[in-house]
Design a protein around this nucleic acid. Structure first.
Length: 581
RNA sequence: GCGCCCUUAGCUCAGUUGGAUAGAGUGUUGGUUUCCGAAGCCAAAGGUCAGUGGUUCGAAUCCACUAGGGCGCGCCA
């Protein structure tokens, strides 16, 4: 092992303990040895609770066992000293040189620092956003986008082969409603006097699409009001039936032209959505069409498999999946009385397809309102003979916007929603990306617009970016060649702030691994806040550009390493790191 | 009514596999700049981890119940 190379210290210490255990209590060799980082510095760099775990089976006191273990512990050049503390903890204090090696390691690994082999190249698919292309993305979708994108980055850094996918709901009633809404606005532009249903899409973007069609095609798609309203259920008494009748009339009157309009509004909205996400730094490897499932016979095939296995039955003219057999609350319809497949049927086919594409792991990022749906999808996988545990559904709670301390209310249909684009324009992409992942995904998010756009100490994004910019500024004033820094003699870094910063830097690979393991990118965000705090404290306590060259280079190497970790972490979250602010 | 999620400092929230004296930001109060970016730093104050019981060497963390909040429960998507 070369002098600049430090082993995985957790594994190293666990190995030492395992050897000691073999001497002290060979019969307990199977015990799992856990090492943790104590919260307090006085408890050392790593602590082990092995002695307390063994107390009961060995019928000896924990401290006595700890003493025996330490007496049999092999010597290691990485361990400065050990102690027994509290109820029987074994605390390890590392040799200071170990911590200093992290600087060299970070500088050597550069942008790759923090990557791990946890995933071992396994294929994982992350499906996220998947919003209906029936209008602009709103701030709720934004959270799914920011979370999913950061999660995918974190998994990739942890050594998974990640595929990012967007499921496009391009079939079904919502698309029909959008096509109808656009057509009705188009008819208005042509002077046809019709009431616009309150449960159709109200947004200005619908009028905009109607205007485009009007300009391009004049009155080509005009039909008289009487024909459009032919045999209409009351809009007041039966609003949904009214809408469905309008759709049926549109399809009948427009014939092939209906599908032209349908595809036009779909393409328009999907393109808008894709562009919006691209500007937000969120990209996908695949856009999977729901419609393609039906077109390629995948739904029939999936249902055929369920049928073969005896999990389907007919009742009241509909086809049912016996999901209660697989832990669901009730059986679910997969093909309606009118012969149409349900959304659920498409989703069974979609998930079968995901499994057949060979992903070792599948992660769905869904809005929390879909949580009732998890059991039936897993049930369907089970019924198909697939392992439901390969699928993880990550539920993302809603985001509520606050401006001036006041909650903003939103509703998609009425058109009173704040779009993701508006949010990005107001607070900027960086603040939006960061604020979205600053909460655990299963927590409600209060998104404070005033805070997100404030360029002040209150704003954690600026706090972190400021730390990065400060480092850039110092390095620029130094004016030396950064390539020299990995060779710096960092033995001079012995101050309290330096030790704290070194320990923080050492944590980073564990943070990214944890974030991947727990599917929790917010851990990275919190880590970066802490790291930036350590840097600011150090900055205010010490001067970096000191006359003595050895100390100066050591300190510059340390902040250069800090800069690198800030950059790597922010990059996982899709946040930029400006050199000047 | 049933199911899932949540409840931690005045406010917004972290808290890893159960681990030692429960942390951060904000707000409040006080201090800090002849010196690399004060968008910063230092300090003080602030807690029945919703409640009760259990599991054990040890519980904010696991289990049960209670209270409060959110979401879901359609031949919608």
């Amino acid at each position: 092992m070369s002098s600049t190379e430090t082993p995985d210290l957790k594994k190293h210490l666990a190995q030492l303990l395992a050897e000691a255990l073999g001497v002290v209590a060979p019969e307990m060799a199977a015990a799992t040895i856990e090492l943790e980082r104590p919260k307090q510095a006085q408890h050392g760099d790593y602590a082990c609770n092995l002695a307390m775990q063994l107390a009961k089976p060995l019928r000896r006191s924990p401290r006595e066992i700890a003493q025996a273990l330490l007496e049999s512990l092999p010597a290691s050049r990485y361990v400065a000293r050990t102690q027994i503390a509290g109820a029987g903890f074994i605390n390890f204090f590392l040799d200071p040189s170990v911590k200093r090696q992290t600087v060299k390691r970070i500088l050597r690994e550069g942008d790759d620092h923090g990557r791990s082999t946890l995933g071992q190249g396994r294929k994982v698919q992350v499906e996220f956003v998947s919003a209906n292309p029936t209008g602009p993305l709103h701030v709720g979708h934004g959270r799914g986008a920011a979370f999913g994108a950061s999660l995918a980055n974190v998994l990739e850094a942890a050594g998974y082969a990640v595929a990012r996918e967007y499921y496009v709901n391009d079939a079904g009633r919502q698309m029909d409603i959008l096509a109808l809404s656009t057509w009705l606005r188009y008819l208005e532009l042509n002077g046809i006097d019709l009431p616009f249903p309150p449960n159709a899409y109200q947004g200005a973007y619908v009028r905009a699409m109607a205007r485009e069609i009007h300009e391009a095609h004049g009155d080509r798609y005009v039909h008289p009001a009487l024909a459009v309203l032919h045999q209409m259920p009351s809009a007041e008494a039966e609003p949904e039936a009214h809408l469905d009748a309008l759709i049926a009339n549109a399809k009948r009157l427009l014939a092939q032209d209906y599908w032209y309009l349908h595809d036009l509004v779909l393409t328009e909205q999907l393109g808008d959505c894709r562009h919006d996400l691209l500007e937000f730094g969120v990209t996908f490897d695949a856009w999977f069409s729901e419609k393609s499932l039906a077109d390629n016979g995948l739904i029939e095939r999936a249902l055929g498999l369920l049928e073969q296995r005896g999990h389907l039955y007919q009742q009241n003219g509909a086809l049912w999946f016996r999901s209660t057999r697989f832990g669901d609350e009730k059986d679910r319809v997969v093909r309606r009385e009118n012969g149409a497949y349900t959304y659920f049927a498409a989703d069974i086919a979609y998930h079968l397809n995901k499994y057949e594409r060979g992903f070792d792991r599948i992660i769905n990022v869904w809005g929390a309102d879909h949580h009732g749906y998890v059991a039936r999808v897993k049930g369907a996988l089970d019924a198909l003979g697939l392992d439901p545990d390969r699928l993880t559904v990550s539920l993302v709670q809603f985001a509520v916007l606050y401006r001036g301390g006041k909650k903003l209310s939103m509703s998609t249909r009425s058109g009173e929603f704040v779009t993701l684009r508006e949010l990005r324009r107001e607070v900027g992409n960086d603040a939006a990306r960061f604020f979205y992942v600053l909460r655990k995904s299963d927590q409600h998010l209060d998104f404070d617009l005033d805070l997100a756009k404030s360029q002040s100490t209150d704003n954690p994004v600026y706090y972190i970016q400021y730390a990065h910019a400060r480092i850039c500024s110092v390095l620029e004033q130094w004016g030396g060649d950064p390539a020299r820094l990995p060779e710096a003699d960092i033995g001079a870094l012995t101050g309290a702030h330096e030790t704290a910063l070194l320990e923080r830097l050492q944590e980073y690979p564990e943070v990214t691994e944890n974030a991947a393991r727990e599917l929790s990118p917010h851990l990275v965000a919190y880590y970066l806040k802490d790291l930036a705090g350590d840097l600011h404290s150090y900055y205010n306590a010490e001067h970096f550009l000191v006359p003595e060259e050895r100390l100066r280079l050591a300190r510059l190497a340390l902040i250069r390493a800090t800069q690198q970790v800030l950059r790597n972490g922010l990059s996982l979250l899709g946040v930029s790191c400006p050199e000047k602010m």
